Amino acid sequence: MRFLFTSLITLLGGTVAIAHNEVPDSIAARELDEIVVQAPRVIRKADMDVFYPSQTAVEYSKNGMQMLRNLMIPTLNVDDFSGTVKSSGQSVQLRINGRVATTEQVQSLLPETIKRVEWIDNPGLRYNGANAVVNFIVTNPDAGGAFMLSGDQALNCAWAPWYASLKFNDGKSQWGLSMNYKLTNKIGCTREYYETFIYPDGQSLTRKETPVGGYMDENRGNFQLDYSYINPDTTVVWVALSGFKQWAIASLFDGVMSLNNGFSDIRLRDYKGVKGFTPSFSAYLEQHFSHNQVIAVDFNASLYNGRTLHDYTEKVKDSGGDITNVSTSIRDCNQAYGIEANYIKKWSG
């Protein structure tokens, strides 16, 4: 019942937001069944559109992703279920107070802490070739804390994304711990194909693979410890230590391949998998100065240690004799460091 009520409110909010686009830079309100849904206030700038969330948009949002969806930004498609944000079919870069952020970090935002949302559909050089950018300008509560837990467990298979976040606030500072886990275990998956090879002498060979079984795995998760000091439009400091773990991201295809040249049917098995762990450290500093000047510094360091597996076998179906047996295991260990600094100057003209 709560889901139906939330969906109804979202639908009503979308109706009013469409009407609002016809008269920009204004606040539109309509009374529907004793509920007043108010569109966000929008300020049009030369390089972006700035959306100020309305009170109703905050009330009917549980996290930052829902808030973004309720803003009803034109051409922006927000999918809470898959955690994707796209515009005109292309991915959108997400940022929080200027730094690049993940969808999980946006989901952990409390709607009441979002001061405004900047929509940039024609990004400049600072955004590294992004198609479009959504920048959340947020504040830290003066005191207290917050706990968030969300999950979607499938009833007919082992599939579920889970997310938890814990935050403590003190003045303009915030300490946070977040974790998420994606379960995809032995989900049924098959493949089939039909192909014909023609030799220079005119002869041909047709191969057809018929699926017998198969599955997909995608068990992964990560944690993050972070600290932030936020004084919007003045100073932003953000430091985080995180780890990303891949238990098993794999696929298995099992099938029977038949040939038209009279050769016996072939039983084939194709397995591919990746597993590993990546700890990383990130830091971001943004300082505003007089005369519309900004310096932003972003630092990232990570270490990956993992393994890639691939097993491919072909056997004669009747006798079980091996035709092809290829097994590879590649260990990968690498480090990455990066620092980016931007000086930004805005002219009022």
Score class of each variant (00 low, 15 high):
11 L>D: 12
14 G>L: 05
14 G>N: 09
18 I>E: 14
23 V>R: 09
23 V>A: 07
25 D>I: 05
32 L>N: 12
38 Q>K: 12
41 R>P: 00
45 K>N: 12
51 F>N: 00
51 F>D: 01
56 T>A: 06
57 A>S: 10
60 Y>M: 08
60 Y>I: 12
72 M>A: 15
72 M>Q: 15
72 M>F: 13
77 N>S: 11
78 V>I: 10
84 T>M: 05
91 S>H: 03
92 V>C: 01
92 V>Q: 00
94 L>S: 02
102 T>H: 01
106 V>Q: 05
107 Q>I: 10
113 T>L: 02
113 T>F: 01
123 P>W: 01
127 Y>A: 04
129 G>I: 01
132 A>F: 02
137 I>E: 01
139 T>M: 12
142 D>R: 15
146 A>W: 00
147 F>V: 13
150 S>I: 02
151 G>H: 04
156 N>P: 00
158 A>D: 06
165 S>W: 08
179 M>L: 11
186 K>V: 10
194 Y>E: 12
196 T>Q: 02
197 F>H: 09
206 T>N: 07
206 T>L: 02
216 M>D: 14
218 E>A: 15
221 G>A: 05
228 S>W: 05
234 T>Q: 11
234 T>R: 10
235 T>W: 07
241 L>F: 15
247 W>E: 11
254 D>I: 09
257 M>S: 13
257 M>C: 14
258 S>P: 04
263 F>A: 12
266 I>F: 02
267 R>L: 04
268 L>I: 08
269 R>S: 08
272 K>P: 10
275 K>A: 03
275 K>D: 08
276 G>W: 02
280 S>Q: 10
283 A>Q: 01
287 Q>L: 00
288 H>C: 10
296 A>Q: 09
297 V>D: 13
299 F>K: 05
305 N>F: 08
306 G>H: 07
310 H>E: 06
311 D>C: 04
316 V>M: 11
326 V>A: 07
330 I>P: 01
